[in-house]
């Protein structure tokens, strides 16, 4: 038994079984057997899976359709997402206030100069 996806404990046999059911892409195999759905998001298994597809379907590696990459890059806790978002929002507010200050704003046009 060879483990292909360490995060989800997916074996080579399971991947081959998915291909026998008609899967031809990494994304289909991910949906059927969960290879690439774990915390590492397929960093380890995606090459192995494409090699297995290439071998089983006798297609060159260059013809194996790449999988979709989804955010976030690494697992992040809810609390961190909220803290970061609020920090950025506060920064944006500060910037907006700064640009709205009278000394930085454009000088008002002098009266009576309009044609």
């Amino acid at each position: 038994m060879k483990i292909v996806c360490r995060c989800q404990d997916v074996t080579e046999e399971e991947v081959v079984a998915a291909i026998r059911q008609g899967a031809t892409t990494i994304d289909e195999i991910k949906r059927l057997v969960r290879a690439g759905m774990g915390p590492c998001q397929g960093r380890t298994c995606r090459r192995l899976v494409s090699q297995i597809i290439s071998r089983e379907l006798k297609k060159p590696m260059a013809e194996i359709y790449p999988p979709t990459f989804r955010p976030p890059n690494r697992p992040v806790p809810f609390a961190l997402v909220m803290a970061e978002y609020e920090r950025q929002a506060a920064e944006d507010r500060k910037k907006a206030e700064k640009s709205a200050r009278p000394d930085k704003a454009a000088k008002p046009a002098k009266e009576g100069k309009h044609p």
Binding site: Q41, P72, P75, V76, F78, M82
Partner: peptide
């Protein structure tokens, strides 16, 4: 994250994978 932790405040340390 905001909505979920409003209902489940104790789960704010849970990590988003995808």
């Amino acid at each position: 994250s905001r909505r979920f932790t409003t209902l489940f405040p104790k789960l704010s340390g849970l990590r988003i994978v995808r």
